[in-house]
Amino acid sequence: MSTELVTKRLLLRPWRIDDAKEALAIYGDTGVSRWLSPAMDRVPDAGAMRLVLQQWIGEDNRLLWPAGRWAVELRDEKRLIGGAVLLPLPPRGEDMEMGWQLVPSAWGHGYASEAGLAIAKWALGEGLDEVLAVVRPANDRGEATIRRIGMEWVGETEKYYDTRLQVFRLRAADLPDLEHP
């Protein structure tokens, strides 16, 4: 099960079925979902979102540590604004990918960088040698967030998801400090 991560403004916590309405505002938005395909398609309605959350919650209990999925919540407002992951990359699962998705109204406030850095620090503190982030070449917003976190570009590949992707890496030595967020 995913452990809770706390930052200055955010709480990254396990997903709950009652998050479906707020989660649909994220994963049902075409501006978000266009970057998730082929790993995930746009979620069309609340019923489908509940099914996705049920699947994620079930998978979270079976993932090998430190992999996980988190709901991203604003601490002060207790409002769900996004989701974040640390998951094995296909096809062989030997590389760990971190990622995040926010509701568009939360874009531009630094929340994605804050969530990504929290996951990276935690994962590297749990013994991973490195974490990766992959992004489509046209996803300028995603790439900017990755660079703000301090990730280093390592190249392009079609290894993951059979899609041309930019690959970025972060190692413990690349972090300014390894204290937990």
Rank of each mutant, 00 (worst) to 15 (best):
M40A: 14
I17A: 13
V135S: 15
N139G: 13
A138W: 12
G31M: 13
A25N: 11
A123K: 04
L24K: 08
G31P: 00
P38F: 08
A112L: 04
Y160N: 08
P176L: 09
D177R: 13
I26D: 01
V52L: 14
M96V: 05
V167E: 14
G99R: 03
A20K: 07
R69E: 00
R50H: 10
I81V: 15
E152Y: 00
L36D: 10
T30C: 13
K121L: 15
P176K: 09
D177P: 01
L87Q: 11
P14H: 04
R69W: 11
Q101K: 07
R141N: 08
E114M: 10
V154T: 14
R147M: 10
L36A: 12
L117P: 06
D95Y: 02
K78M: 14
P44R: 09
T7F: 15
P181C: 08
E59L: 15
S105I: 02
Q54S: 14
L165S: 10
V135G: 03
Y27Q: 07
P14Y: 00
R136A: 13
R16S: 09
E94M: 13
D162K: 13
K21M: 04
L124K: 12
S105V: 11
L175E: 01
A39Q: 08
V131D: 11
L63H: 12
A39L: 09
S105E: 15
Q55H: 03
R147E: 14
L36Q: 12
V154R: 13
G82Q: 05
G116H: 12
